[in-house]
Computed example of a mutant assay.
Amino acid sequence: MSAPLHQHHSPIEPTILASWIRALCQTLRGYGVHPEPLMRQCGMDAGLLHVPEARYPTAQVRRFWQAAIEHTGDPLLGLQMGEEIQAPSLHALGLAMLASANLSELLSQMARYCKVISSTMHMALRHDRSGSALVIKTLGGSEPNHAARVAMLAFIHRQACRLSQHPIKPTFVALAVEPTPEYSARLDNYFGVPVTLGAEQDSIGFCYSDMLEPFAGANPMLVSLNEQAIRDYLSRIERLRFADRVLEQIRRTLPEGEPRLGDIAQTLGVSQRTLQRKLNQEAQSFQGLLDQARRQQAEDLLQHSTLPIVEIGYRLGFSDPSNFCRASHRWFDCSPSELRERGRLVAT
């Protein structure tokens, strides 16, 4: 059951796991809303939904939540998503949850590794005489109506009931959601307790007897394997060079036109001077990374697509075909058409 996580997209900005968004898309379909047009409006590539390790920028996801709520007309869309998302879609973290010994271990896993799901999410466990509570926060803002945090708490409660094989009643649920009678009725019915709305933070509590009740499906070996996969994944993210982050952002921006140093610096949250200094420390330059990104995309598009050569040049930021031709000679020691022909000969 171990599902190793491999990094496809550098977290150059706050990101959210694509499979979490896939669950939201499935929920939208239940409302009769097609998610793909909404994703395009928010600048999201729907093709990443089926890449297990892919991630979306948080800013795009929050716009997507806004559009999703508007099109469904359901302010508690997050609650519905929390009822439907399946643990295995969270890969190694979800599989570790399914193999956990009890609710205490499950909540500890979520608190330690929640950044696999969202790099802006922070969870903390608190304990007192009455039991334990899981508190959720998101850095740098939130989705409309705290939708993602509501979804997460609903998902956790459903897993607690499923793995315990009987209903688990929280000691309390508190949400920073606007208090309305309609919201209260739906939330109270789902969690089985009166939910406090308008709270300062989103949290859920459980008594110690429920926290420590053994789960029938406990498997320490699977927990260990999947937690190691999670740690390896998070460690790879943290070790990324700054130049790798700049290069990834250049690759994302290139189809929209030639990336400018100032725009890339702003996306990364640094000044132009800081960006140049950090690249210099790694013996890199912005122009060199831009050239590297263009070279890689030129080779890929010329050998693996049927796009006209002139269009490929435009996509790479060459408004003049002769400039693209000169760059091709510098990169590959041949013209774009000759490189394309080489690719065809190799293929046959």
Results as ranks from 00 to 15, higher is better:
M1T: 13
M1C: 13
L5D: 06
I12W: 15
E13W: 08
P14D: 01
I16M: 05
A23R: 04
L24K: 00
L24A: 09
C25Y: 00
T27C: 07
L28V: 04
G30I: 11
H34C: 10
C42M: 04
G43T: 09
M44V: 10
A46R: 06
R55K: 08
Y56H: 05
Y56T: 03
P57S: 11
T58S: 13
A59N: 12
Q60K: 11
R63I: 09
W65Y: 14
Q66Y: 11
G73E: 02
P75D: 08
L76R: 02
M81Q: 13
G82I: 01
I85T: 10
I85Q: 06
A92G: 02
L93H: 02
G94T: 00
L106K: 00
S108V: 11
Q109S: 01
Q109N: 05
A111F: 07
K115P: 04
I117K: 00
I117Y: 00
M121V: 05
L125K: 03
H127G: 09
R129Y: 15
S130E: 13
G131C: 09
A133F: 09
A133M: 13
I136P: 00
G140E: 02
S142N: 08
E143Y: 01
H146R: 15
A148H: 03
V150M: 08
L153G: 00
I156M: 07
H157D: 07
Q159V: 07
Q165N: 11
P167L: 07
F172H: 15
A176V: 06
A176D: 07
A176L: 02
V177R: 03
E178S: 11
T180I: 02
D188N: 15
V193E: 00
V195S: 00
T196I: 09
G198V: 03
Q201M: 10
Q201E: 15
D202M: 01
F215N: 03
N219I: 05
S224H: 11
L225I: 08
I230W: 00
L234H: 01
R241A: 13
F242H: 00
R245S: 14
L247M: 10
L247P: 02
Q249R: 15
L254H: 07
L254V: 06
P255A: 04
G257R: 01
G262S: 14
Q266R: 15
T267R: 15
L268M: 06
Q272C: 15
R277L: 10
R277M: 14
L279F: 04
N280W: 13
N280S: 14
E282W: 06
F286D: 02
Q287Y: 10
D291Q: 10
Q292K: 10
Q292S: 09
Q292H: 07
Q292W: 01
A293K: 02
R294M: 03
R294F: 04
R294D: 04
Q297K: 11
A298T: 06
A298E: 07
A298K: 00
D300E: 12
Q303P: 06
H304S: 13
H304A: 15
H304T: 12
S305G: 09
P308G: 09
Y314A: 11
R315Y: 11
R315P: 05
R315I: 06
G317T: 06
F318N: 01
N323M: 12
A327C: 02
S328D: 04
S328M: 06
R330H: 10
D333R: 15
S335I: 06
P336W: 09
R344P: 02
